[in-house]
Amino acid sequence: MTFPTDRPTTWFVTGTSRGLGLELVRQLLERGDDVAATTRSADRLLAALGDDVDRARLLPLTVDLRDETAVRQAVRAATERFGGLDAVVNNAGYGFLAAVEETGDREVRDMLDVQVVGVWNVLRATLPVLREQRGGHVVNVSSILGLTAVPGWALYCAGKFALEGLTEALAAEMADFGVGVTLVEPGYFRTDFLTRDSLALPAATTPHYPAIRDMIAHHLELQGGQLGDPAKGAAAIIDRVRSGEGPLRQLLGSDAHSYATAKVAALRADVEAAAVSAAATDFPAA
């Protein structure tokens, strides 16, 4: 992707009032780019940004990403305001900590509506623009827990695993149109992700999972001590998009790299263990 030289780059970013999304918006505005920023509360976004940014280049949009019509209207507003669209960042999301058995039907649907349906709504609205201009970049912010799973994170992992599959397919579909695709897999970043503002808990628990209760307590205590620097993480994402180079997956954080390395080793062991037995289910060779 070659970004325009005769005008600022235009970004459409979701989930912008906190964390990496907020830091992305701040840095993009500091660069002089145009940003359409969706959030559940435009007032909260503006308060978080303060007065030290160029608000003339910011289009804050209060959008429920689960509402396809609202998403299309937001994308239309962005392209009309800024005259185009260059990069799309799907960042909206939240955490959920519970055992599988404790996770209710409504909680499952709410998570997947945000992490999967919401992303799909944004893609359906933005891909035609990028495809027709034969250029642009899509960033889907997953997690290292989209690559590996741990107890207590099943619902969050389910949403991120789905996002990973969607993004792998999307990258192949967009290749012929000159549209880049990046799948970001952060580790633990020092945002407010591990606070009650961004982390949901089950409506009811059982006494059968004390290890998960201990894990949740530990994670709430971890807030403020995470390894990742959100300013560096946002800058790395911007650099990847601007360069248009790099592999599909962008691991952020040494902890993410360690988790990924362990996952690859475990998957390789499983594959090698099945080297002989896998063929047992084939029809006999003719």
Rank of each mutant, 00 (worst) to 15 (best):
A211N: 12
A162K: 02
L147T: 12
A234L: 07
A274R: 15
G135F: 05
G146Y: 00
L29A: 13
P210R: 07
F82Y: 06
A256D: 04
A149C: 13
I216T: 13
Y156A: 01
R7S: 06
R131H: 02
R124F: 08
V129Y: 06
G253V: 03
V75W: 01
M215T: 11
P207S: 01
M1Y: 09
T195K: 07
A217F: 12
V179P: 10
D229L: 05
V138W: 05
A231R: 08
D192G: 12
T182F: 04
T2Y: 04
F189V: 07
T39Q: 04
V129A: 11
G146L: 01
R196V: 12
A74G: 00
T205E: 10
P230L: 00
T205H: 08
V241Y: 05
L97F: 14
D54H: 09
D197H: 14
K232A: 15
S277H: 14
G95Q: 00
D51H: 08
G83E: 09
M111H: 10
G180L: 02
A175F: 03
E102P: 09
G146K: 03
Q27P: 08
A37L: 01
T79M: 05
T10N: 08
F82T: 05
V129D: 10
L130Y: 02
A37F: 01
H208N: 15
L58H: 06
D176W: 07
I144Q: 09
D105Y: 12
L24N: 03
G246K: 01
G50V: 08
V116F: 08
L252G: 03
L22T: 12
E80I: 07
W11M: 04
A278C: 15
L29F: 11
G95C: 01
G95N: 08
N91R: 04
F189E: 02
R242T: 10
S143L: 01
T281C: 13
D105Q: 14
G21P: 00
L170K: 01
T126A: 10
A265Y: 05
G32L: 10
D197E: 13
A37K: 00
D54Q: 06
L194Y: 14
L58F: 00
D255A: 04
G159F: 03
G187Y: 04
A273T: 13
W11E: 02
W153Q: 14
S258L: 14
G233T: 01
P8V: 09
F177S: 09
V116I: 09
G118H: 00
E107H: 05
G136D: 01
F189P: 03
G244N: 00
A47L: 11
L29I: 11
R131S: 05
L28Q: 08
G146H: 04
N121V: 06
W120V: 15
G104I: 10
L28Y: 00
A77D: 03
A158C: 08
A56E: 14
A266Y: 10
A274K: 15
D34T: 14
D270G: 15
S143Y: 07
Y94L: 07
M111I: 11
H208K: 15
G118M: 06
V184H: 07
A217S: 15
P60L: 07
